[in-house]
Design a protein around this nucleic acid. Structure first.
Lengths: 160, 160, 160, 160
DNA sequence: TTTT
DNA sequence: TTTT
């Protein structure tokens, strides 16, 4: 009925931009959010690693300007998805669907690798996006696919 | 660095009060939070089911006054725990550690089952709490134990 | 850069629906939000009285369903307006521009006084609204006009 | 009943540390928070200027590390004070009582002017604080005193 | 699997 | 496994 999340943390890796079969842009990244204390007298600082999902124009902007290590504010809502993995077990995935992202550290311009073509894909379908869903070795390291879910993103996941 | 969540929803079942080995009260419940829309033109209303954890005095108060179906506001922070299940696979659990809970629907008094002894257990250790970790049939339905994690709550989980 | 407010409280009076000269609906009400403590050992409960403003469709819905005393959740952003009063002194007004309002206590249907014509005025200009800006004695008690500002609402205030 | 604010913006000037008669540290500053849009097609960027108040240890830390222009995140609650000014008119002041402040831009060490003696005044009363309430010309520009309120801060304002 |  |  009301569902609001605000986080400030740093990206654990570069954001990943993909496209749904219908050509909708979706970007995922993980935010490392330091905890306000260290439990059990531990010396090391602890953090929560929280998965963020952005859609459409915001997805393109995030993919273009965010990078690993950047301090970032995220506003959104908690969403809990579930699916049955390949052992027939139900798996729950909690993500933040962001509707507002603030870049707290200015970068130095555009994505150097990948060029600017992804950036301006807009709402329309960009054929280049579909190649992201191919079975390259890079896909094998994708934590969202590692979960055992055959297809990670579908248009049914569209939150708005 | 900053981690804030505010939710309003309804409890999917009565809250569960337990005690850590050191006697610290911890209460868990799930909030059904209706989504602001229905995806894909679906007729049924959809909700996110979000696990809430409260500690110490707040845990006792929640166990005492909250019940299944009650409209409730929760303020807290997102925490992501992980553990290796009995197949050696790492499982991630996302929970809201609440520090403020508001009862938006007044009840009609105390817990009828269980009496008031749990309620006033305070910070001190109450032997009665440990029986909650026994292997009764009710425990088999506990989603937190269903995950395959041998012991659900330890004092290491204490967030403050 | 980021500006988010979430409040739960009760309306101190019925909401007031007006229309800008261009016919845009705007509803104002005040939320009494109990403080989490009583300062100085005072016996009486204390509250903050916070002005809420809603626009367009949300304004119509609030005017239609909210009433004095209702428990209500408001999500929005803080806005600080200023103007020079009739003594030439600059006055600052802080309001919450709400973009999400949740009715936590169900009413029993529509506004009994005033009928449903205001409710469905939509985006178009409804002449009935302008009568709210007349100089009736009820207006004299309006804190928004008491401030000495001759005209309270203009289309320049439109936040989106 | 629930009252939560999260802001990110920049300080409009250096923070001001004072002490109540009882020696409690209180720091005030103003955050300029850019609006997410420009109203009326105006070219200039607009911002809300929001008054922040911190108490005790947090007040000392803010006075020590925050400076004009710094990007800062503030978490707290809205408080509305009122008092009668010297014309007998009731004036309302809206402030954010912060309980969490994050410095999003690292400084280069301590306050250069004033040294570290203010910083570590702790809970005890520091005589130096009272001089802040004298009638120096710098005080004349203080918006909190400009309001016409004879004494700006009292121990009655202590929120916890 | 994690960020500074 | 889910609430009204």
């Amino acid at each position: 009925m009301l569902n609001r999340v605000i986080l400030i943390g740093r990206l654990t890796r570069d954001p990943e931009l993909r496209y749904t079969p219908a050509g909708v842009a979706v970007t995922q990244f993980t935010l490392a959010v330091d905890r306000p204390f260290t439990s059990g007298g531990s010396k090391e600082r602890e953090a929560d690693f929280i998965n963020i999902v952005t859609w459409r124009q915001l997805a393109e902007t995030c993919a273009n300007y965010l990078r690993k290590g950047r301090l970032t504010a995220v506003e959104g809502r908690i969403q809990v998805r579930n699916y049955d993995n390949n052992e027939g077990k139900r798996v729950y995935v909690t993500e933040i669907i962001a509707d507002n992202v603030r870049f707290l550290e200015s970068s130095g311009g555009n994505r150097e690798e990948g060029g600017s073509s992804n950036v301006n894909a807009g709402g329309g379908y960009s054929g280049g996006g579909s190649s992201n869903r191919g079975g390259g070795s890079r896909e094998q390291q994708d934590p969202f696919i590692d979960d055992g879910k055959p297809i990670d993103i579908s248009d049914d996941d569209l939150p708005f």
